[in-house]
Nucleic acid binder design. Sequence first.
DNA 1: CATAACTATATTGTGCGCAATTGAATTGCG
DNA 2: CGCAATTCAATTGCGCACAATATAGTTATG
Lengths: 155, 155
Amino acid sequence: MQKKPKNSDTQNVGISLDGQLCFAIYGAAHAFNRAYKPLLEPLGLTYPQYLVMLALWEEDGQPVKAIGERLGLDSGTLSPLLKRLEQADLVRRKRDRKDERQVHISLTPKGAEMKAQAEHVASAIGEALGCGLDEVAALRDALKALRERLRSASG
Amino acid sequence: MQKKPKNSDTQNVGISLDGQLCFAIYGAAHAFNRAYKPLLEPLGLTYPQYLVMLALWEEDGQPVKAIGERLGLDSGTLSPLLKRLEQADLVRRKRDRKDERQVHISLTPKGAEMKAQAEHVASAIGEALGCGLDEVAALRDALKALRERLRSASG
DNA sequence: CATAACTATATTGTGCGCAATTGAATTGCG
DNA sequence: CGCAATTCAATTGCGCACAATATAGTTATG
């Protein structure tokens, strides 16, 4: 608790820098959302719905639980979201015969077709990012690491 | 549109890498939210409410508009949020006498006092991040740049 | 002065996001 | 077999987040 002209700042810098990181993450997440919104609107998808579809295009027929773990969402969020996707005829929900607690989400033909459209969306965002692929990859890894550190500290 | 063995990947890599950046930002934002939640609960604040308070601790008496611009939120989000902060006796809302369209948000004594508590919260998060200040600063700047690029492309 | 254009905030409706609860199905153990 | 513990999904309640709209106040223009 002695005076340390340089390090005495760490507490102040702590709240300030941290605050700025708060704003930065918060703002970046919303900016992403806003950038996608107009591109997804013609497809009739919201951004979280797009993320779910992305997960399904990667692997079709996943149970709700698996999607939830991949995206970090629980059933309270996914259940109504998936119902809307079902209403839009993009996915179907089928109970597993062997374990009827599970509901498998599978793409309809319409949902599978949409992947091609979505690739245009993704590439449009890629251009907006400036296409610095190395930079994007580095950022992605930094964010993953950040998430891990936060998760292990609080979860 | 010719074959370019290397660059023909850019479309595939595009959706994949982009998808991963989506997940990364999305997940990091939620991870931040979850990390803060248990720390803010004793203060009776949600994470967005904390961000608003942070803005007010930095500069008291800001009009709603200024807060909204700082955080990237509109009145549809802020109006009810500020009412809850007012109900909790953390802020007050006063109309500007010179321009009665504006509502200035000012801290109550209780709201001002809370800053000290919040610094503990911020430093706890700082520790959870591993305190790599350089790294945090770099990440913050990368996110700010990212946000700017997205904003200029879509806004 | 009057009226149009603009600005700041509030309201409404839809869709996340999560905690807590519920309910059905499965598994484990005696 | 019978019963408790567990698992998965759905539901409920609350709080963001934003588009669209409404309302009141201000400024600009004739």
